[in-house]
Design a protein around this nucleic acid. Structure first.
Lengths: 131, 131
DNA sequence: GGCATAAGTCTCTAAGTGAGACCTATACTC
DNA sequence: GAGTATAGGTCTCACTTAGAGACTTATGCC
């Protein structure tokens, strides 16, 4: 096996990166969280309000919806706008940064959709081998 | 209070998908987990044994290493081979399926690396706005 | 004999998640 | 004018999950 491609992790270490404090990891830890990706997909078509998001994602609790939206806002992927209606309403929408994340996200979703049959088959084999 | 545009998730629902039981989500829940991606990256260069993986990923516990490897094995991304040495050793390596996942994974990592400055800037703005 | 190594398992505790009650303010319904 | 609904959350409690690290079983090394 060729060794011309050193692993990314090895490179980072060589560059003095502490893997425990890896910035890419910090970003991915947020973005790969269960709900954030679903929220981003839901916002792909345009701004949505808090409760509309909650209805679109039926099994997210308000608590986690709030928390996930805060994370996305903090990282600059989502914009939060408060409108002075009565009662006040809040709209969430993608920033340019958030929109740009959809490309790699869709790449991963497409991979999952495309390879689902193999994964299901592997799971069946694995389950069968456990008896 | 109808939504004017139909989101991708809405479309799936219209197609009879239960979002709670979405197969893509099941796959992504595993693959987007904290450790699985790091393990896959670590295996990119070739097979590794259990303890070698543990040393490469210094802040993973043995418990989670075992569990993550099992998940990856179950989904067919990683192959586990036991060698009858003394004491017996176990090598983990990527399957073709696992290797194919590296493409979208690297796309996401590249995005994170490339957009890190914007994210850090956004976090600073957000932290400043919290006072 | 005592220590190290292999690949885990087991237990205990700490942290994170989900369900859902509750909050403040306004407007509509009867 | 009491009740109900909507908005966008927060708060609490129960439950699940993750992390730290001791323990296991068999062998080789000094």
């Amino acid at each position: 096996m060729r060794d011309s491609t050193q692993s990314r992790i090895e490179q980072w270490k060589a560059d003095g990166f502490d893997p425990k404090n890896c910035p890419v990891r910090q970003v991915l830890d947020h973005l790969a969280a269960k709900w954030t990706t679903l929220i981003l997909l839901e916002l792909e078509n345009g701004a949505q309000r808090f409760n509309a998001l909650g209805r679109a994602l039926p099994d997210i609790s308000k608590r986690m919806l709030t928390q996930s939206l805060r994370d996305l806002e903090r990282d600059g992927l989502v914009r939060r706008e408060v409108f002075d209606t009565k009662p006040p309403s809040v709209a969430y929408s993608l920033t340019d940064l958030g929109r740009s994340f959809l490309t790699p996200l869709h790449a991963m979703i497409d991979w999952a959709g495309h390879n689902m049959p193999d994964i299901v088959a592997a799971r069946n084999v694995f389950a069968a081998s456990e008896d």
